[in-house]
């Protein structure tokens, strides 16, 4: 699934990474616990989270994740956006809560990854 499709499905706003929306993502992970995210192996995944601090971006960076979707209409602050730009990670923000966001993407064919 393209990042642009995720944006459309979740009616999301692009916070940064407008020029990278044609990237492919193959799996998704939804969590506010970063250690849980780090316990999963995923290639080219998208991270959905309601957590709002720079460690969300760092976690995505360590996992080679392409895109982070902030749920429940949350908007990251400048320090988070700057870090994401530096690390070349797309940030989206959707008004939908976590459960609904995951369900909408799952319904369109996106799946979770394997456990390490």
């Amino acid at each position: 699934m393209k990042v642009s499709e995720i944006k459309d499905i979740l009616e999301a706003e692009v916070i940064c990474g407008e020029n990278a929306l044609d990237r492919d993502v193959y799996t998704a992970c939804g969590s506010d616990m970063m250690s849980d995210v780090l316990a999963y192996v995923k290639e080219q995944a998208v991270l959905l989270s309601g957590l709002m601090n720079p460690q969300v971006v760092r976690t995505a960076e360590m996992m080679d994740m392409q895109c982070i979707v902030f749920v429940r209409g949350k908007k990251p602050d400048e320090s988070i956006i700057e870090l994401a730009k530096e690390r070349d990670i797309v940030l989206l923000s959707t008004k939908y809560p976590m459960f609904a966001s995951c369900g909408m993407l799952y319904e369109k064919g996106l799946r979770g990854g394997a456990i390490k």
């Binding site: 506010d32 616990m33 970063m34 250690s35 849980d36 989270s49 957590l51 601090n53 460690q55 976690t59």
Partner: peptide, 8 residues
């Protein structure tokens, strides 16, 4: 902050 779940 998203850590401290005993997974480290």
């Amino acid at each position: 902050l998203g850590f401290g779940a005993g997974m480290g």
